[in-house]
């Protein structure tokens, strides 16, 4: 069996993989968290608007 002999350092590729993985997980975390916060904020905004309208 032919061993892999492409003479280049392997660590940049390993590092790039781990960075890509971490970046996508962080991106996913941020999207889910902000989506929840946005929905709740929109709801709260709508509720306060209706409350104000009812008060006047």
């Amino acid at each position: 069996m032919e061993p892999a002999t492409f003479s280049m350092p392997h660590w940049p590729f390993v590092a790039a993989s781990y960075v890509i993985f971490a970046a996508l997980i962080v991106a996913d975390l941020v999207t889910t968290a902000t989506a929840r916060r946005r929905v709740l904020r929109d709801l709260r905004g709508r509720l306060t608007r209706t409350a104000r309208r009812e008060a006047t």
């Binding site: 989506a35 709801l43 709260r44």
Partner: peptide
């Protein structure tokens, strides 16, 4: 679970329990 929560909130946005959830500021 996180994404499902957002979708549930969007679908149920008129309901009482969602109102209570959004109204209580400590819940976020």
């Amino acid at each position: 679970l996180s994404r499902a929560q957002v979708m549930v909130l969007e679908q149920e946005s008129g309901k009482d329990w969602v109102r209570r959830l959004a109204g209580a500021p400590a819940n976020d």
